[in-house]
Design a binder for these strands. Structure first.
Lengths: 239, 239
DNA sequence: CGGCTGGTTGAGGCATCTCAAACGCAGTGG
DNA sequence: CCACTGCGTTTGAGATGCCTCAACCAGCCG
């Protein structure tokens, strides 16, 4: 039996509380429509006109960026409390596809209604800006990882980010289900699926992660710190 | 004598007009302080508390992201009309260093004053959000290039972006001065300085760019389209 | 002049990609 | 129940693009 770091009910977290406050604020102050989605459903598509932004109430989403010449990339992963659609504000139409990777619920908020509400509710405006800012910060960190980490470490860092996101939201982090194929992970991390597979195998061999019973899609993470340590070791070893 | 695509005075451009309108709006409606900077000056540093955002009135700036373990990366390049400091809104303190690469001027606007003005001037709020959104879109495009383009194409795409940015602002695009060393370019693009140097040499050999007289820091771009074409050829050749 | 910084170029090594084979699992239809 | 197929994964072997290391060059400044 693998070691458990925690099996307690979700603890209240600072991030979790912030998210809940924001959701409650929206619910009370801004008209919105709830929408239940299932794996594969698109929330919006590139070139759709922007009328709504979407905030994730539950579930897991990806945004897929694609260039005129047909290259495409998973540009971001989004969890409860994240917004979808910031990319569309500049041109008044979306620049990515936003796709559900799992059953979940998004709240659609008309952008004009949101702005109207923001003029009278400062916390709403502040929360909105913080969300955009956080998105920018995350993208920057992703770029940093892409540019400075070798493949193995990039995969480890990816898992660490996933686990951190779960933890911040009060969800269990010791066992996560990757709802992405190796090819998708590779696309996100800028490497080929075989490289992802090898990296995961090495992480397993080093006891940093484990796989649960049948199938190798659920990842067992006994200790999130071990992932960070693995990244650091990769860097130290290179130097 | 190299061919000239244009030697006209800067044409009015749509982007240029948008930028000028935004600058004028700020000037009229929001208290701000102008600050002249020179190459190497820092506009703000990571972990500084955020009180102001900065909009670029002239000059060229970079933002440098750094991780706790000491890795660092040039995360963005910023021209006239771009804002600096979005990264700091989430945590109320900056997450990057913002550094001038040239003589220029930034306008510092207190964030609280900006928000206050935004509540009464909808165009200001709209412009502000568009700027953040544009930043997100750019970061996404950068990630796409990092993940899908080989080194040569990445350098070509970098130059294309630079030239496009100049053109959008009504500046001449046939000859640009890279105020970055090869090492800095490489850091930004996720490759080593030697690789950048080789890529530039190949672009020169293929007549896609030229170098002006002495020194190889000024790049001559007779035709921006040729850079895009080079990128496409790299992709086609790979497939 | 001599030292320094930044750039170019070559040779060899290594990380990642490519190509290929085989496996496990789920779904389907006999 | 058992082929049989299809998709996602793993693993190996060889190719290659980029990195590393090193030499050399050009401009700049004290």
């Amino acid at each position: 039996m693998p070691p458990k770091t925690t099996q307690n009910p979700p603890p209240r977290t600072r991030v979790g509380e912030r998210i809940d406050r924001m959701l409650a604020l929206l619910e009370q102050q801004v008209p919105m429509t709830r929408r239940v989605v299932h794996a594969g459903d698109t929330v919006y598509q590139a070139s759709d006109p922007l009328t709504c932004l979407y905030i994730i109430h539950s579930g897991l989403f990806k945004t897929v960026n694609l260039s005129p010449d047909g290259r495409e990339q998973v540009a971001g992963l989004h969890f409860k409390g994240d917004w979808l659609g910031f990319d569309g504000i500049a041109e008044n139409q979306f620049a990515c596809d936003a796709i559900a990777m799992d059953t979940g619920e998004v709240w659609a908020v008309r952008y004009d209604a949101l702005l109207a509400a923001c003029t009278t509710i400062p916390q709403l405006l502040a929360g909105f800006h913080m969300a955009m800012s956080r998105q920018i910060g995350r993208d920057r960190d992703t770029m940093l990882a892409l540019c400075t980490l070798p493949a193995d470490a990039r995969v480890a860092d990816f898992l660490r980010y996933w686990a951190d996101s779960m933890e911040q939201r009060g969800l269990r982090t010791d066992q996560i289900t990757l709802r992405m194929t190796r090819a998708e992970i590779g696309n996100y991390l800028g490497m080929k699926l075989e490289t992802v597979s090898r990296a995961l195998s090495r992480l397993e061999r080093d006891q940093v992660i484990g796989f649960t019973e049948k199938g190798r899609r659920d990842v067992h993470i006994p200790n999130v710190r071990a992932l960070s340590d693995f990244v650091q070791r990769s860097l130290a070893h290179a130097a």
